[in-house]
């Protein structure tokens, strides 16, 4: 671990940096965020696709996540429509994954002697990803700080070997560690730096803007069109012949297709926030996104990265 960071962290970014250092020291590849709008770090192809197939894998990354329905115009102390998740995914799940996880909490300054850490049953399921696993939400003094899951199935495929996934909402965790009551008050960079910025300095305005747009202004017809376009494109990509006529190589375009699945999923979330999806339709939309992820998963295990 990097000894530069001793004692308690003082800012949001220091917590992120400490996590990156910690998981790097434990042998994870530190990836960068996926460059698309997603609802959670699990959607990153480094998790969704890489947990499939037999090849060992270990990665950690920050993923900006968007949940349009959670917008509160920046008023709620910890609910945001845009937030950061920290994600660790290791295949096969190592026997000491719980201990590794607790080590990461120590690394960000949680004193194991003063706090009450608990693993409380929480089985994870993502209907849009066609995925489920068993695990816990991890509580620190009654606060859910992480989600800990042993993936059993993703994209309709059995996970074999099983991947262990750790996910946490960084803002909530950081607020807890830094002792901040309202997310907007949280120091983003070092409070001693000449230009110190709070989380609110950076995100209060955007939370307001997006809350208004998500709830009331987004053009539902265009979103729907966009959903349908992504859906069609995903299918079209996967339907293309495996052999590329130009290069003569076999190239299954899983990731481009999966990008379209991600896009459709986000469009669905936006439509949901707009309140234009009825309960019966909801299930149908979720089923359509799941069909896309499933077809991507099926394709991935035909590729080099998805086989031995």
């Amino acid at each position: 671990m990097n000894t530069e960071f001793a004692g308690k962290p003082t800012s949001f970014q220091e917590i992120i940096l400490r996590l990156q250092n910690y998981w790097a020291s434990k042998g994870c590849a530190i990836l960068q965020p996926y460059d698309m709008e997603v609802g959670a770090g699990t959607f990153h192809p480094a998790t969704t696709l890489r947990c499939l197939g037999p090849k060992p894998w270990a990665a950690a990354y920050v993923q900006p996540s968007r949940r349009p329905t959670d917008g509160r115009y920046g008023d709620n102390p910890n609910r945001l429509q845009h937030f950061y998740q920290y994600q660790v995914i290791i295949k096969p799940s190592p026997p000491d994954l719980q201990a590794l996880y607790l080590g990461s909490l120590e690394a960000i300054g949680i004193d194991m002697d003063l706090h009450d850490i608990r693993f409380v049953e929480d089985d994870w399921e993502s209907p849009t990803l066609g995925a489920w696993g068993l695990g816990w939400e991890v509580w620190c003094d009654g606060m859910e700080v992480s989600q800990f899951t042993y993936f059993q199935q993703v994209g309709g495929q059995d996970c074999n070997p099983v991947s262990g996934e750790l996910t946490c909402g960084l803002e909530r965790l950081a607020m807890y560690v830094l002792g901040v009551d309202h997310v907007m008050d949280m120091p983003f960079n070092d409070p001693q730096s000449p230009t110190h910025l709070s989380y609110g300095d950076i995100f209060l305005q955007t939370e307001q803007e997006y809350s208004r747009w998500n709830f009331d202004v987004a053009d539902a017809d265009k979103l729907l069109k966009s959903f349908e376009d992504a859906e069609a494109e995903c299918a079209r990509i996967l339907a293309a012949p495996i052999t590329d006529p130009k290069t003569g190589r076999d190239i299954i375009m899983v990731h481009p297709a999966y990008d379209q699945a991600i896009k459709a999923s986000h469009m669905f979330n936006l439509l949901d926030a707009r309140g234009v999806i009825s309960v019966t339709e909801r299930q149908a939309y979720i089923g359509r996104v799941r069909a896309l992820t499933k077809s991507c998963a099926d394709a991935f295990i035909q590729t080099k990265a998805g086989t031995l």
């Binding site: 102390p77 003063l114 009450d116 620190c140 003094d141 009654g142 009551d181």
Partner: peptide, 16 residues
């Protein structure tokens, strides 16, 4: 520390 943490969580929950 544990109690203070729990109290804070409750505050957020009840705010919701």
């Amino acid at each position: 520390t544990i109690l203070a943490g729990n109290q804070k969580v409750l505050f957020a929950r009840l705010s919701d």
